[in-house]
Design a protein around this nucleic acid. Sequence first.
RNA 1: GGCGACGUAGCUCAGUCGGUUAGAGCGGCGGCUUCAUAAGCCGUAGGUCGGCGGUUCAAGUCCGCCCGUCGCUACCA
Length: 696
Amino acid sequence: MPARYLVTSALPYANGPIHFGHLAGAYLNADIFVRYKRLTGAEVLFVCGTDEHGAPILVNAEKEGAHPRDYTDRWHQAIKQSFERVDIAFDHFSRTSRPVHYELTQHFFRRLVERGAITTRVDDQVYCEVCKRELPDRFVVGTCPKCDFDAARGDECPRCAAAFDATELKAPRCKTCGTNASKRPSKHWYLDLPALRPELEAWLEARFPAWKPNVVGEVKKYLADLKPRPITRDLQWGVPVPLEEAKDRVFYVWFDAPIGYISSTREWAAQQGKPDDEWERWWKDPGTQLVHFIGKDNIAFHAVIFPSMLLGQREGYVLPDVPANEFLNLEGQKFSTSGGWFIAIDDFVDRFPADTLRWTLTRSAPETRDSDFTYKDFQTRVNAELLGTFGNFASRVLKFVQARHQGAVPAAQADPGEPERRALEALRAGVAAAAAELDRYSTRGAAERVLEVGYAANKLIEERQPFKLINTDPAAAATTINVAVRLLEGLAVLLFPFVPGTATRLWAQLGLEGDPTRRRWQDAAEPADPAGRAIGALDQHLFQRVEDKTVEAEVARLRAGATPPPEKAAAPPAAPAKAEAPAAAGKPPISFDAFAALDLRVAKVVSAEAVPKADKLLRLELELAGGERRTVLSGIRAWYPPEALVGRQVVYLANLEPKKIRGVVSQGMVLAANDVGDVAVLLQPERGVPDGARVS
RNA sequence: GGCGACGUAGCUCAGUCGGUUAGAGCGGCGGCUUCAUAAGCCGUAGGUCGGCGGUUCAAGUCCGCCCGUCGCUACCA
């Protein structure tokens, strides 16, 4: 076992709130691991920070009329606070917008160039003279090279469905400012992953046996098609490329972001007043085990790309373990901050103790596959596990000490009985088993081992029934209670990484000084004899019951809050109330004439069939007045089997310009409402009306 | 349609390198108990480990096909 651990959690993107899914995937497990390792006496550093570059932040900041700096300031604060509220105890939480990070990123680049791990390539790019930037495909419009349609997009033509490169467009224009754009050759820099492949693979092959199958699979997939990756782009927001010929360029956000782990470490060292080379102890000493806790979407970056960057430095950087988690769902559906399908952490912690959230998310963590958070599950974990097993055991033992032993732990007989020996053995086994789980990064498995100690502890009371035994054999009853108090102390230490606040309160109830970090993890297996010690105040239960009606209310709140409009949920909590949103629907007002321009009709579906090679598409034949037929494509296959549609009426936009999709011309569109989770719900007249009837 | 995953008791899930009668919690049912937050403990539920075929002395655990679910992606006017 290494004696030093450098632990990182994925840098959250400063573009939205963190939610349960993030916590369960990369933060809670890291925090638990860190607390555990500290208890074992290892030297541990836990760093993180916000990732603040990239186009999405720039775009969203612009949308608000804010400088990206101010925009990320707000999100950085909001995210940091959320972590604090669930006791994620980073040693340092930095930001990738700090000067130290700029310097280090540029240094990384220079080293990679020196080591021959950077290549360049020159390609034509569409460039806008007015905006003074190269245009990504989706910011270009122009004339289709195939059919001369004059409003073709940068990647394809909406009329003839041809796909092409933006540079192939005739007369390309900038979508933002509308002026003509030009083509010009443009040089970009690439991280030469194939050049680093031999060292990379040698390291990976050695680590694979210890890694989770989902991580290994993902990495192998990536290695199978390993190509140089562009690391520069033409953007105003990011770390500048330190070359005269690239002074209008910044690094791709994925390039600078992981370097944030290192810059965060350096910033921490500086703030602690440590020597200048302190950070190198953490990053370059082979005695350090680096661990990246991330979600599965980040595997390639942390297991392939960033290690390649580290190897490419040739400075002896240590390489990581990558215990990636899968995704957490919410009540059976994907989290969606834009769709409102998420639970804000601050909101939740306002109503329930952080420890109950920590425990539930740990017990349901998506370690081997996607898992689900439900309020029902939350209730069970709180009531049955935290309260029923741990809280109850503490309560029944300590209240007994208080009532029957005047608040001082009674002495044990020299030779405790068999049930006591078994219970203490269960504690010892739990300490070892939980450690083994944690050493392989399974916080979920470890929590289960701790729970088993709780089961064994309650069994001891059942077997001995000290509340009866005290009348016939007081010394034996006292022994049981004495042992039970030892079990509580052991449990307090074992529980500390998972529910630090509660474990600390239990510590006080046990009449102990400070908190469980006074002990070593290993000591939890052999608590000292507590005989004679006065227990603390029992004024408060360790956990409160979660009632059925509370669960129902929370689920209702969640569903109510999930109603789209999409944008509203993503507003940063700290954002000043913005100018009135343009109506609830989020679109600017239109004139009546604009509305009247729509030819909306009721139509009857006369036939419906799936479109080949398209999962979502249905081809509908609609009938209007006088038997007029129209063919329409609609992406509702997932929710409406074709046969269920025939004969019913729908609302139909008749004068939408036709578009060819999958070889079929669609003449207009069928209207549907968007339910939670993007489910389409067809509109239909309240009662039958003649086919072709106008809608106004 | 392409790529990737997954499909174990009513529910949520464990099942490392293939090897004795396939597990836990919750729920249900039946008991016990009253120290404890109506908490706890015991027993029970007898599930073709999605289906078919294959490899093997032996497969939930490896391979192929099929069915189903999900994610990413294309399409969703």
